Structure formats: C-alpha cells, structure tokens
Computed example of a mutant assay.
Amino acid sequence: MSTEQTIIQFEQVTKRYDDGETVLKSVSFEIERGKFYTLLGPSGCGKTTILRLIAGFLEPSEGEIRFDGKVINRVPANERLVNTVFQDYALFPHLNVFENVAFGLRIKKLKQAAVEAKVLEALRFVNLKGYEKREITELSGGQRQRVAIARAIVNEPEVLLLDEPLSALDLKLRTEMQYELRELQRRLGITFIFVTHDQEEALAMSDEIFVMKEGTIQQSGTPTDIYDEPINRFVADFIGESNIVPGSMAEDYRVQFAGKTFECVDGGLRPNEPVEIVIRPEDLEITTPERGKLQVKVDTQLFRGVHYEIVGYDEAGNEWMVHSTKKVEVGERIGLDFDPEAIHVMRFGETEEEFDKRLLAYEEIGHDQ
C-alpha cells in the first residue's frame, strides 16, 4: 500500500485500562482513503475501542496511531479530522433538525450564510431536504440516523466513524439504510469506518473487513476473501454458516475427511498433517446417495423462505448443513455433491501472518494455491 493512499495507521497499538484489563493487544493495520471499512466481531472484542482511539476519546497504552503520517496519540478529539456517529445518535432533543446539524458549525463561529448553505447541503446529501424545522421527537429511527450523519459530514471530516448505528432499527429499515450508507460513502468519497457485530452488514457494505476476537485482528480482506478463504475456525464460524469437519492432507490438492479422499485446490501443507475442512452450506448440492461424494441421513429440515436448511450426518458422524431449494424428508438418505473449489483447507490455529507466509513460500516454488 502506498503512503499517499494511507490515511490511518495503527502500529503495535495496545490499550490497557486502569483495572489491568487489556482490550487491544499489539494491533497493527492500515486504512486507505476513500474506502468503506468494517470492524467486525462479537461484543468485547475491541472494535469500539479502536474507533474511540481514532476519534481521540482514548489514548493508547502502547504503540502509535498515525493520521496522514503524523502521530496523533495525544492530539485532542476536537483537533482531529474525524467525526463519529454514535449508536444512540446523541442528538439534542431540544433542537430541531437544522440546529442539530448546525451545532458544530456554530461552535466554529461561522457566519450565518455559510452555516445555512452547509446545513442544507448536508441534509440534501442524506435525503432530508425540507426537514429543517422538524423536531427530533417527530422523526423515525431512520430519519434520526440521517440527521446524525448529516451533523457529522457537515464538518467535512476526512474519516467518518460509525459505531453500530443500525442496531436500533428494525430488519427492513436496517437493510434500506445499508444501501443508503454505502451509496452515501461513494458520493462523499471519504473514508468510512463502521463497527458492527452483524456479519451480513459487514459483507454487504464493506470494501474491506477486519474480523476481531479478544483484542486482536484475526483476518482482514475483502468480503469475498473473508467469506471464501477464512483463516481459522473462528472466522469461518463467525462469517456465515459453515460446515467444519476434521481431516488431513493426503498430498497437494488432495485431502481426506469423512473417511474418503477428495480433490481440492489447496496446497502447501505436509502429507498427513491434521487440518480442518470448511464447506459452505450453499456449496453442497443434493443428489441421490449413489451419485453423491458423501452420503448423509437427514436429521432436521427448516424452511427459511428462499431455501430449506437441511441438517444431516454422514457415516463418520460429521454434521452437514445444506441450503437447498429441494425439499427432502427427515430420515431420508441423500447424497451430497460439491466441487473441489468448494473445499477450503485450514491449518489448526493458523494466524493470518502465518497463512500469508505459507502462501508466499508456496507461490515462490512455482505453485498456484
């Protein structure tokens, strides 16, 4: 990544609270300009702490945070070119929409004409033109969120931080706001850093995702990379539904699991090395037992609207989940077919750094993993 593209850098950043709890552990990453990033992980993993460190609400215990190449560890929040949209929006109930959005501009003592122009432009950006005189209590949840975003972007930040801003909305409105936020980011052309524990939100909206667990970044990459090539069991299990079964490498491009040997597209591991196998439910096709690579007895079946969620067990006792439009019967024996590309091989406990080194070494000897 070129230095000109990089706007934020974390270099071995640790955050430790006064009670001794360490919530971030030597975290390093870079953020590029003009992209939509998501910090994804369960509650307590450190994602909101990263947001607060960027915003200037916290200082790191160790390491450096850089903005445009300059260390900002102790730069006050009001001097940083970032703005935050909080989970509860933090709007002023005694001010109308216009005055909520204008609040930061008034603190800067801009002239009234400039304030009016900037506020109206920000409201137009978030599709709230004509709402200037509305009271906050008169707005829906989605409209309040738009006001909070307008208040943030009116100050022309280089980075917009969003701390789970969709969590209070119902499912339909959350989906609508995902599209709106993504489109807003594209129109503004600034960097968005979005915090969520919802993997569907992360996959739908992001240019790049950081998957977090217990104060560390487990894996980073595009939504496709994260979903198709999870680095370990935690990522595979956290990002969507996964079938994860034990296996071992037979040789490059051949792996053993469920008592059989299958072709795959992964290499770079030792023969007989224990591994974990990931196959997504939608990559399994139901066929007859005779034609299937695996034979499974159906245990449960649930209708999920667009597909059936079928769970069964193979002869080795492995559980398999299948997403299919085909309806089967509980107790029925079915075959499961899949392509070699559907098999993802993971080394036990491998970190992203170790995976990258293995991939690089494998490519250097003339193989394409």
Rank of each mutant, 00 (worst) to 15 (best):
T38G: 14
Y131K: 12
T196R: 04
F348T: 08
G268D: 07
L128P: 14
I231G: 09
V119F: 05
F234I: 09
F192P: 03
P230K: 06
V275I: 00
S28C: 09
L58P: 12
V85K: 05
L284F: 07
A342D: 05
K111S: 10
L128M: 15
P76H: 02
L336D: 00
L360C: 04
N83K: 07
V147K: 11
E116N: 11
R16N: 08
S26A: 08
L188R: 04
K326H: 09
I239G: 06
K25A: 04
E164H: 12
F103N: 06
K25W: 03
I286G: 09
F86N: 10
F103M: 07
L184G: 09
N96H: 03
S28M: 00
R186C: 07
A90P: 06
L269Q: 10
E116T: 08
I8M: 11
T196E: 04
G69V: 05
E138Q: 15
T22R: 00
L58E: 15
G317K: 03
V345L: 04
F10D: 08
R124S: 13
E99I: 01
I72L: 12
E273G: 06
E309F: 07
F355T: 12
A204S: 13
T175I: 15
I217K: 11
P93Y: 00
G215C: 09
T222F: 07
N96R: 11
V298N: 01
G305N: 03
I65S: 02
T48I: 11
D88F: 07
D237A: 11
E282T: 05
I279K: 04
K109E: 02
L128D: 11
P42M: 05
V13T: 06
I190Y: 00
R174E: 00
G331P: 01
L336G: 07
L166H: 05
I244S: 03
F36N: 05
A90R: 14
S206F: 09
V82W: 00
L284H: 03
E176M: 08
N127A: 13
T216D: 08
F86L: 10
L95K: 15
F234Q: 12
E290Y: 04
E350P: 10
E285D: 00
K213G: 10
Q9A: 11
R333M: 13
P271H: 05
Q145L: 07
W320K: 05
S167M: 13
T222L: 09
G366Y: 05
K133V: 11
E59M: 15
